[in-house]
Design a protein around this nucleic acid. Structure first.
Length: 268
DNA sequence: AAACTTTGCAACCGCTCCGGC
DNA sequence: TGCCGGAGCGGTTGCAAAGTT
């Protein structure tokens, strides 16, 4: 079914306050492309006048940025891109445009949609305190950003030190991961830096007197959880937990097996 | 085969930021 | 210094298509 037909079905394409809304037609796209070719990007509110489009500036900008831009990458998000999205979301939270800048050809809208479709399904905020959460989220985001900036240099130093410490047992951890998940490591999302500083790589002896390697890290209730080569049952639970991410700071889902991977493959 | 659910996507809305005046 | 408009951002909506029961 074409957009034009759909527009007819659902009453889209209606004109509100003089501006057309709803799905774009091929003709409108053509006009917009021609406008940008001649005038370049920006001055979106002039588009209506200069290009003969009955669309407001916001709508034109959105259409161009998310759909018409020639450098856009079409097609599905690749596993590699998914890994980057996960990693950057862990670092930046819902700052989609920031994340999008690290993925050439992908738009913030695309990444946002992808994230919500794939990783947000279990996240639910209680309706009673939803607005409070939003206000807090804004405040926390800014505070977090400022703190991140201040700590960035220090953090990078620490990461380098951590990297050197971790490299000695990287292969062991990777094989451990493969055993417990039966998944190719290339498909695994990883979220470096999250609580990396609190996870502890330990070797221990299991009930069969076999030497094991695992990670232990504190949970939010103060207890400790762990993952090792004889903990495959916990693995699924931990994976499930990853998707219960909290939108407020994007970090609360970090108590997951993903951190195992982080330790093994630091980013950057 | 029908009903239901999930995924993918385009588009809009409201808010914030920022630069010019 | 405050106002205003443009631009950008994140959240949300709603539909089609695909997948599942």
């Amino acid at each position: 079914m074409s957009w034009a037909v759909m527009a007819g079905h659902f009453g889209w394409g209606l004109i509100e306050e003089g501006w057309r809304k709803g799905p774009w037609t091929a003709e409108e796209d053509k006009l917009l492309i021609e406008y940008v070719r001649v005038h370049g990007e920006g001055r979106w509110n002039s588009v209506a006048r200069l290009a003969g489009l009955n669309r407001n500036g916001k709508s034109c900008r959105l259409r161009w940025v998310n759909y018409l831009r020639p450098d856009l990458k079409k097609g599905r998000i690749t596993p590699h891109e998914q890994s980057i999205i996960l990693e950057l979301h862990a670092r930046w939270g819902n700052r989609w445009s920031t994340i999008a800048r690290s993925l050439p050809g992908r738009t913030d809208n695309e990444i946002k949609n992808y994230w919500r479709t794939h990783f947000k399904k279990k996240t639910k905020l209680s309706p009673s305190n939803n607005s409070d959460h939003k206000a807090k989220a804004r405040f926390l985001k800014r505070q977090q950003f400022q703190q991140q900036q201040q700590q960035l240099l220090l953090q990078q130093q620490q990461e380098q030190e951590q990297l050197q410490l971790n490299q000695f047992d990287m292969k062991r951890i990777m094989s451990l991961l493969d055993e417990t998940e039966h998944k190719p490591s290339s498909e695994l999302p990883y979220v470096p830096q999250l609580r990396q500083e609190t996870a502890t790589l330990v070797s221990y002896t299991n009930t069969n007197e076999q030497q094991q390697v695992g990670l232990f890290y504190p949970t939010f209730d103060g207890s400790a959880s762990g993952s090792g080569s004889d903990m495959s049952n916990e693995a699924d639970v931990l994976w499930d937990g990853l998707w219960n991410l909290d939108d407020i700071n994007g970090n609360r889902g970090a108590t997951s097996k993903v951190n195992l991977h982080n330790l093994a493959i630091p980013y950057c």
